[in-house]
């Protein structure tokens, strides 16, 4: 890791610009939506994984090989590192958000965009099952990468995620039960029990050419905004405003800020610490 780190910042801005431009022209996908510093690191990671020596060579491959481009979208993905990240948020989800949704709706529709390696989705699924609301809840989980969506249907998580997830879960659940009741041990890690996938629908969703999908009661999009430019964050918030039903909730990462966006007036803050907003 250290070795990779020592090289990574050396990629020039102009090389990145050319790559973004070339991909946009060939595949119609604007990688310029990504915040530059972390995008550079992820391009570096893609170079490393695919054993490519320069950004120029990578650009050529991306332009000439559509399949490689799809794989690249997977390579630059940022994995979640844990289940029940920010236990305080998930307690709020369990104690406040879910009961309110339960009272108001006969069917609860949740969208989790940018679901990446799936921890947030499965965390939500566990909390929903514990609340006894599984049958009336549908989770729509999307990502821009088809490969990621494919992997998620039978994802094996590495064992080094277990310990932190267990600690988080204990904080969430006030030590009533163990996280391991939801996991199945595999040779190279662990899976989440199949029944927790039953109300999850996985789909590829590219915001850039997206039409409105459907009215959601809740959008959970935590630590996704941080990977995008301000301009794109603003577009995303507009999209979320369109796709939330009246009084629907939006949860963002605790260090993310949307208050400057032009569509922010369409939201009301309902929890300051856990960054939960309601569509007005």
């Amino acid at each position: 890791m250290n070795n990779a780190l020592s090289k990574e910042i050396e990629i020039g801005i102009s090389g990145i610009r050319n790559l973004v431009e070339a991909v946009k022209n060939t595949h119609g996908f604007d990688l310029g939506c990504f915040a530059i510093t972390s995008f550079k690191r992820r391009v570096m990671k893609a170079l490393h994984i695919n054993e490519i020596s320069s950004v120029e060579a990578l650009t050529d491959m991306l332009v000439n090989d559509k399949q490689f481009f799809e794989k690249f979208l997977r390579d630059i993905n940022v994995e979640c590192t844990e289940f029940f990240r920010d236990p305080a948020f998930w307690r709020y989800f369990r104690n406040d958000i879910l009961p309110a949704l339960d009272r108001k709706h006969s069917q609860i529709k949740i969208w989790i965009p940018g679901c990446s390696s799936g921890e947030e989705v499965l965390t939500a699924a566990i909390a929903i099952q514990e609340a006894g609301l599984k049958d009336k809840t549908k989770i729509y989980a999307t990502d821009i990468s088809p490969e990621i969506i494919k992997e998620l249907t039978n994802k094996v998580y590495s064992n080094n995620k277990f310990e932190i997830s267990e600690t988080n879960y204990q904080r969430f659940n006030e030590e009533k039960t163990d996280f391991s009741r939801y996991t199945i041990t595999e040779r190279n890690g662990f899976r989440i029990r199949d029944d927790l996938y039953e109300n999850i629908e996985l789909d590829v969703y590219k915001y850039q050419n997206a039409q409105k999908i459907k009215g959601f009661n809740l959008i959970i999009c935590r630590n996704v905004f941080i990977y995008y430019t301000l301009q794109y964050q603003e577009m995303l918030l507009g999209l979320f405003a369109e796709n939330l039903s009246y009084n629907g909730c939006l949860a963002i990462g605790i260090m993310e800020d949307i208050s400057w966006c032009k569509d922010f007036y369409k939201f009301k803050e309902i929890d300051k610490n856990d960054k939960v907003y309601s569509r007005v």
Partner: peptide, 29 residues
């Protein structure tokens, strides 16, 4: 991260040397 625009950027990318925040990354950027 410190970005060229004179702003911060946050990231949940994997820990570096078991650390997040990584001192290396803030210093390098």
């Amino acid at each position: 991260y410190v970005e060229l625009a004179g702003t911060f950027a946050l990231s949940t990318e994997e820990a570096v040397n078991h650390s997040r925040p990584s001192i290396d990354l803030t210093f390098m950027t």
